[in-house]
């Protein structure tokens, strides 16, 4: 564990907490894409299939449980909670997530390190995580009215990806045989998707104005 990896995990954790805070205390999920949250739930479910069979550390297992639990509970809140679900922007959040899942599954079947059930699903989770933010970014673009918590949530998620890239660079130079092309390319694509959002986020921060995306 290096400082970049820890910083990445902590920003990831913070992003989830910000979202849960919004849903729990304000009882609102306005501006949050259910499609993206469902995709994250699938990402964690397919990636952490090894939770019972492979043990790395208490930290790892605990974090996996947190990400699994939080992603599924966020989906539950948005779909079934009597007040929260009424604040969901159903009509704007129309991204077809099948269009993301099928290509990711096909790509995982074609490009992977080993052709085994767990390995292909693990690779699928990497590809899917790379594009899972897209419905959220589309919704953001459509609603235009971005509250602070939603903006911070996406900012923290992007920060998490940035720190992971630094972590990979650090590990590549400090650990022998640390080469993971699939993880790196999927991670890089994912981080690049945030570039546009980051640009406007910093612009609004610099000018001390509310975050607003161009139409």
């Amino acid at each position: 564990m290096n400082i970049f990896r820890l910083a990445g995990d902590m920003t990831h954790l913070a992003s989830v907490l910000v979202l849960l805070l919004k849903i729990h205390t304000i009882k609102s999920c306005a501006g949050v894409s259910l499609k993206t949250q469902e995709l994250y739930a699938i990402v964690f479910a397919t990636r952490y299939l090894d939770i019972l069979t492979s043990f790395v550390s208490i930290y790892n297992t605990l974090m996996k449980l947190i990400f699994l639990g939080s992603s599924f509970s966020i989906v539950w809140y948005m779909k079934y909670h009597k007040t929260v679900r009424r604040t969901y922007d159903r009509d704007q959040d129309t991204f077809r997530h099948w269009f993301l899942m099928l290509p990711c599954l096909l790509l995982a079947l074609l490009i992977h390190e080993k052709f085994t059930f767990f390995e292909v699903l693990w690779t699928f989770s990497l590809y899917l995580e790379a594009v899972a933010i897209l419905p959220q970014l589309v919704l953001l673009q459509r609603t235009r009215n971005i509250d602070n918590l939603t903006g911070q949530y996406i900012f923290l998620l992007g920060g998490y990806r940035g720190f992971y890239i630094l972590n990979w660079i650090y590990r590549y130079f400090t650990e022998p045989h640390y080469v993971h092309w699939i993880t790196w390319i999927a991670g890089l694509v994912q981080t690049l998707l945030y570039a546009d959002f980051f640009y406007y986020y910093f612009l609004s921060w610099k000018n001390n104005k509310k975050l607003q995306l161009p139409a």
């Binding site: 990831h12 090894d50 492979s54 790892n60 974090m63 990400f67 992971y164 972590n167 045989h177 640390y178």
Partner: peptide
């Protein structure tokens, strides 16, 4: 072993 040792990231 199902997963190799380097799959220690989240």
């Amino acid at each position: 072993k199902l997963f190799d040792d380097t799959k220690d990231e989240l």
